[in-house]
């Protein structure tokens, strides 16, 4: 297991990488979408996105001024002996990255609006068997997060209601969550679990569909239907409103049908690292 400082520095590198570059699957999807557009305003939006990515990478500065709030997903082997406080190490990494990258101070008290880090960082820990460790980070801006939705549907309304809920959320948000978005959908579980599933769905690279064939089919049909809206990049009109729809599900009470929706803006900033031979190694997606 790496030492605390080593671990912290790898997380700083992850935050740096996530804030300044996008994973290849996202860039590829933006480039493909640009080719499909037929109107000048839409192609100019995509050109601006791509030019911006090139500049951010070259200058090593954040793609977007909203450097978001980092959300950590940790898979922690229950037999792994860390030897340090994981959450404190993540918190130290954010502090370092805030100066080094730099990141904008976004965390405030929800009532007073004053700068605060109480309750931060946001860390979701999954205990898994063995000695493995994997860390995934989403850098989540407010523009897309603000359009999150939770619907408690009637179970008898089934798939048709799920589709209506997702498409309604896409139509309602229009150009505001910085489309083309990735739409994360969590179905089932409970109110809290559905929200987490929706967010976790955003970690999945574009172009990978759900292993469940029913869900994979639902994902494709939702994406096609969303793109029919013509909302387009930044809501200015065009063929690409979503880059993808990712659906995850969990069993739930027979009298419930929770559906949560979480939007990821086109600047889908994420990073992953996992333990390889006792070293935390950043994956370059």
């Amino acid at each position: 297991m790496p030492l605390k400082n080593e671990f912290r520095d790898v997380v700083v590198e992850m935050l740096q990488r996530a804030a300044t570059t996008l994973p290849k699957d996202i860039v590829d999807a933006i480039e493909r979408s640009r080719k499909r557009e037929r109107n000048k305003i839409a192609t100019v939006q995509f050109d601006c996105m791509l030019k911006n990515l090139e500049l951010a990478r070259k200058l090593g500065v954040p793609i977007c001024q909203d450097t978001g709030i980092p959300i950590f997903f940790v898979k922690l082997g229950s037999e792994l002996d860390l030897g340090f406080d994981l959450v404190r190490a993540l918190s130290d990494a954010i502090k370092r990255a805030a100066r080094a990258v730099p990141l904008r101070q976004n965390a405030v008290d929800p009532l007073t609006g004053k700068k605060s880090n109480a309750g931060q960082p946001i860390v979701h820990i999954d205990l898994i068997r063995g000695k493995h460790l994997q860390i995934d980070i989403l850098i989540k801006g407010a523009g897309s997060e603000n359009w999150s939705r939770l619907y408690m549907l009637r179970p008898t309304d089934g798939q048709a209601a799920i589709k209506r809920a997702v498409l309604f959320a896409v139509a309602e948000s229009g150009g505001k969550p910085c489309p083309p978005t990735i739409v994360g959908v969590g179905v089932g579980g409970s109110a809290d679990v559905a929200c987490l599933l929706a967010k976790r769905a955003l970690l999945r690279p574009l172009g990978t569909s759900n292993r469940d064939r029913g869900l994979a089919d639902l994902e494709l049909r939702l994406a096609d239907a969303a793109n029919e809206f013509g909302i387009g990049p930044m809501g200015l009109g065009g063929r690409t409103t979503v880059l993808g729809v990712h659906v995850e599900k969990a069993a739930c009470h027979m009298a419930s049908l929770p559906v949560a929706i979480n939007f990821q803006c086109w600047a889908a900033r994420r990073a992953s690292a996992r333990l390889v031979d006792d070293r935390l190694v950043v994956e370059v997606p």
Binding site: C48, N52, L59, I63, C178, P233, L236, W266
Partner: peptide
């Protein structure tokens, strides 16, 4: 007037 969301570095330039 609309500017491309997320294009922070392009704007800064």
């Amino acid at each position: 007037l609309a500017f491309t969301g997320g294009a922070g570095v392009l704007a800064a330039r």
